[in-house]
Nucleic acid binder design. Structure first.
Lengths: 84, 84
DNA sequence: TTGTGACTTCTAGTCCGTT
DNA sequence: AAACGGACTAGAAGTCACA
């Protein structure tokens, strides 16, 4: 009565994992420290660290700031690694 | 000194628009009211209304709840309509 | 059925540190 | 360079009355 038959079951909390892994990956590709990324995104260094450790429930506006700092689209930050 | 040369410039606030448009579209495709979606996502009806009107800076966990209710992946909710 | 402003509670997000 | 903690403030979550 609600979900399309072919969509894979998605465990809660996976979004934080996806974001964390993509941020870590993209930041690494650019050779940036957490502090450098935080500066580019206008966020605090400890907050970026929390996000990468999945310890915080980041808001959409700040996801967007991270995406812009990394030079990618917002949805790219939430794609499964297999597709990134 | 920061952004890859070929990434398109993305205006701030677009993420809310993207999310809103995708939620409205997917909800419409399913013939659901805001209240029905809210119920499926475990959220309040007025909260969904605020999100669709871009009036709230929703967090990642709740984006995930909406995605699960709609039976799509999180990144699908933030894709440009042209690619959805 | 949906939009909206206002309100309280709780956590996102900052800033200071130490390891 | 990054994990981790404490204390604090800004702002999201969640709800309601009403248009």
């Amino acid at each position: 009565m609600s979900r399309p038959p072919h969509s894979p079951p998605t465990a809660v909390g996976q979004a934080r994992d996806l974001l964390a892994l993509n941020v870590i990956r993209l930041r690494g590709e650019r050779g940036w420290s957490q502090e450098a990324l935080a500066f580019e995104a206008g966020l605090h260094r400890t907050f970026v660290a929390h996000v990468e450790r999945r310890a915080r429930n980041i808001s959409l506006d700040n996801i967007e700031h991270l995406a812009q700092a990394l030079g990618v689209r917002v949805d790219q930050l939430l794609k499964p690694l297999s597709e990134a």
